[in-house]
Design a protein around this nucleic acid. Structure first.
Lengths: 170, 170
DNA sequence: GGTGCCATGTAACGCGTTACATGATTAT
DNA sequence: ATAATCATGTAACGCGTTACATGGCACC
């Protein structure tokens, strides 16, 4: 549901067309993120179908055809509702590492402690990468920093959890 | 990709049929988790198509028809490869709360600090719920505890991040 | 006779990804 | 000329969810 709301959010500051929405998303909203252009168009179709946006065909000064989308009142209400409400924090019952450990415990000849150790190594490496990226982002853009700070906190929490798993399963 | 591997993992201890796989998943592997039975069958179809499993029609003692699936050598190799390799730890570039904050900053009349405050409250409540569930799980099953411990660590990390956001965006 | 569990599926939809196709304009 | 960018789409596939459909068996 995130891309729908991201697009609604970008439209809150005025009408835009699909290609422009993608550029704004990638260059301004989530600088490290990629947004598939095909998905933008299908998402806009669905938003229009649901009455959140409406479009107008505009022939630009250059002669290019554009479909310029604008928020409807309904769309603005949905955006406000989304921003005002809390985001779900699900339990992550399908966590891949958890599943891997649980399965490893059930198979003969596989040591779950080895799995934990390998995941820990990979997690450390990842933390290192992200920390370097964080250093490079320092002072460039606040939001880039925030996203990387979140990743760092998550990875540290995960490492703590892996230690915890090792203890409890020994 | 998690369900595919979970099913391969459950088949490592011997052949099973779809309905049984789902029951084992829910009652043994991820006790808090639900697995849609339709998805089990479509996943088994795909695993078979890819050569990871093969099935045999078995008429049970009661007269019920069962399709009993077994790992192929290829499937076992894939399972081992999955267990041995690290799990991806992506950056979560589409994190809903991050998007919400970023969008809130770009819309007039919306205060991102309010968004952060609301998310924090929701996060606290969630932490409280999960902590209670954790207490109930204590001593029942180690893996139930681990999953909830992970959730607790994640929520705490997220709360820390929200505090961090509040500072940096003020 | 009905309810519930065992057992298998299909269909429709949403969201996401990759790849392909089509044109116009702009810059080199 | 031709490559890049602007601009719009479609098609195919994977994975996930909900809902629907079918039938046998067991128990009350």
């Amino acid at each position: 549901m995130s891309i729908r709301h991201a697009i609604l959010g970008l439209l809150a500051n005025g009408p835009r067309h699909g290609y422009d929405l993608r550029a704004t998303y990638q260059d301004d909203l989530v600088r490290a993120g990629k947004l598939n252009i095909g998905q933008v168009y299908t998402t806009l179709d669905r938003l229009e179908r649901d009455g959140f946006v409406e479009h107008e065909r505009v022939v630009g000064a250059e002669g290019r055809d554009k479909k310029v989308y604008a928020l409807t009142a309904h769309g603005r209400a949905e955006l406000d509702r989304w921003i005002a409400g809390p985001s779900p924090m699900p339990l992550d019952l399908r966590n891949e590492v958890f599943l891997k450990i649980a399965i490893a415990r059930r198979i003969e000849g596989v040591d779950p402690q080895d799995v934990i150790e390998r995941e820990r190594r990979a997690c450390f490496e990842r933390l290192h990468e992200v920390t370097q990226a964080r250093a490079r982002a320092q002072g460039v853009a606040v939001e880039d920093e925030l996203l990387l700070d979140l990743a760092v906190l998550r990875l540290k929490a995960f490492l703590k959890w892996l230690d915890h798993c090792e203890e409890k399963l020994s």
